[in-house]
Design a protein around this nucleic acid. Structure first.
Length: 495
RNA sequence: GGGCGCGUAGCUCAGUCGGUAGAGCAACUGGCUUUUAACCAGUAGGUCGUAGGUUCAAUCCCUACCGCGCUCACCA
């Protein structure tokens, strides 16, 4: 037991056992979802089909309002909240056992469905069954959990004690279901590719490393599924997607979690223009699904997600905000100095840093930034009519990068050259060796292909108006609260 | 990793310009059969994040550490 287990409640557990009842019975009870009961109750003036019927609800008691011979107790299940009324004259022999109940307990209540004098739908209990005793007290009923640390560490409490929290995660689930439905409708196959990668690739990021004992070799946790998914395009699956957990060993912030979810999809015979249309179509549909319309509010600002979104050329944006062309090296270097951006030696990285510093925050969006300099797109095909640029776009909403897509490079020799350039960089965020197996896959021929990645967590943030990525992750990354592990408590019980 | 801020009862928060702490809710006892942040009376509950330092005396001042939040950097 941890220090959260309350002595009074533990004493009740003992008393329940002594009476021969089980405070933690093995079986639940058949019950009707609360939302169904509320809907079936109607009002006092306009009775529904369930009014006056005997019903059973099961869920968590959120509190007890004790009037002596009458107790009102709101009960919460996954579908909603309903009031139960416990009366002495309806409960007979059971009545003395009401003293064993506390707020937070899990119970099943059976009784006649009716209304109170004030008109609130109420289950008038004729039978109460304890399903599981809560020995830790719930948080304060009015404020709920407001301390963010406590909320993230004890999400299992936050989900029922804090208003609106469960709703965000229900929406997240619906968004994922909706994506799957949409892509299924487009003829896509959902696939799963390795999380343990022998060679990092598909993005630039610092990886986590781990070790396989039997093989006695190190693996990287994937930073992107990209190269495996494109192997499947070579394999002829033609339309594939993966909702992939990626891992990047970088900072944690309001927009970054070390593990995060990306939708990546690849479509043969498509290019980045098709990917833009797919992105717009999907976002508009997702917004309708969770917000009932094409607008969403995020960080106090409203965004219109109906397609189409403006296409803004990288080169134009760069010139607008910096007064020089992106490939005017001396001018860009001067501009970087002005902005106090440190020069690590790689011109194109520096140039893109300047772009990010001067342009991205101003992109309210939704908008596609298109046609990136080819040097910062090692996996994208160059534009046929301008080899300085790659057929790539990034999707921005609220200054936040939500998506990244390109017409995929399928020339094996060109791909190998670009990999070799990356390796030569010796940057910890780029691969240490060329993925020759991937090059070999391309040697067998990959059709012209469009690929797209969308950051699901950030998308959920925008669609559910949550400021922090932690608020759309059930269990955001946290330091363990008590590394010295005193006794019992696994987390910040005393915080 | 840098900067700023926070950590007091199970929860939400006061407070002490240095003299070892309070409220509301939750819990417990009693009263109340239509409340809904129910109400009334009473009881209990705290190594004031941890460890040092200064001091006659530290929850308060100082230092370090731990944890969290915001922010900057890196990235998605």
């Amino acid at each position: 037991m941890t220090e959260l287990a309350h002595p009074d409640r533990l004493a009740k557990v003992a008393a329940i056992r002594e009476s021969g009842e089980d405070p933690y019975p093995a079986r639940g009870v058949a019950s009707t979802p609360v939302a169904e009961i509320i809907a079936g109750a109607g009002s006092a003036d306009d009775p529904g089909p369930l009014l006056g019927e005997k019903v059973t609800v099961a869920g968590r008691l959120l509190g007890l309002r004790d009037f002596g011979k009458l107790i009102f107790a709101p009960l919460l299940d996954r579908t909603g909240r309903i009031q139960t009324g416990l009366q002495k004259n309806r409960l007979g022999d059971w009545w003395p056992r009401r003293k064993w109940l506390d707020g937070g307990d899990l119970v099943a209540v059976t009784g006649e469905l009716g209304h109170t004098q004030k008109g609130e739908v109420t289950v008038w209990a004729s039978e109460v069954q304890l399903l599981a005793k809560a020995v830790a007290p719930p948080p304060e009923k009015w404020h709920g959990l407001t301390d963010k640390e406590a909320r993230y560490r004890r999400r299992y409490v936050d989900l029922w004690a804090s208003e609106g929290v469960r709703d965000v995660f229900v929406k997240r689930s619906r968004i994922l279901a909706c994506i799957r439905r949409y892509l299924d409708g487009e003829g896509y196959l959902e696939v799963e590719t390795p999380t343990l990668h022998p060679i990092m690739g598909g993005a630039t990021a610092r990886p986590f490393t781990t070790h396989h004992n039997a093989l006695d070799m190190d693996f990287y946790l994937r930073i992107a599924p990209e190269l495996y998914l494109k192997r499947l395009i070579v394999g002829g699956l033609e339309r594939v997607f993966e909702i992939a957990r990626n891992f990047r060993n970088e900072g944690i912030s309001v927009r970054h979690n070390p593990e995060f979810t990306m939708l990546e999809l690849y479509e043969a015979q498509a290019d980045y223009r098709r990917m833009m249309e797919l992105t717009e179509g999907m976002l508009e549909m997702l917004c309708r699904e969770v917000n009932g319309g094409t607008r969403t509010t995020f960080r106090g600002q409203e965004y219109e997600l109906a397609a189409p979104y403006p296409r803004l050329a990288y080169a134009d944006l760069f010139r607008e905000h910096n007064g020089c062309d992106f490939d005017d090296q001396s001018a860009v270097r001067a501009r970087a100095k002005e902005l106090e951006i440190r020069d690590a030696g790689n011109y194109w990285k520096l140039m893109n840093d300047v772009f990010e510093a001067t342009v991205e925050d101003h992109l309210s969006g939704p908008a596609f930034v298109i046609d990136y300099p080819v040097q910062i797109c090692p996996l994208a095909k160059a534009k046929p009519d301008d080899p300085r640029l790659a057929e790539r776009f990034e999707l921005f909403i609220a200054g936040m990068e939500l998506g990244n897509a390109f017409t995929e490079l399928n020339d094996p020799a060109e791909q190998q050259r670009r990999f070799e350039d990356q390796v030569a960089d010796k940057d910890p965020e780029t691969p240490g060796e060329v993925d020759l197996d991937y090059v070999q896959a391309l040697e067998f021929g990959m059709p012209p292909t469009g690929g797209l990645g969308i950051g699901i967590d950030r998308l959920v943030m925008v669609l559910t108006n949550q400021d922090s990525i932690r608020d759309v992750l059930l269990f955001p990354a946290m330091r363990p609260h008590r590394a010295d592990g005193e006794h019992g408590a696994p987390d910040g019980a005393e915080a």
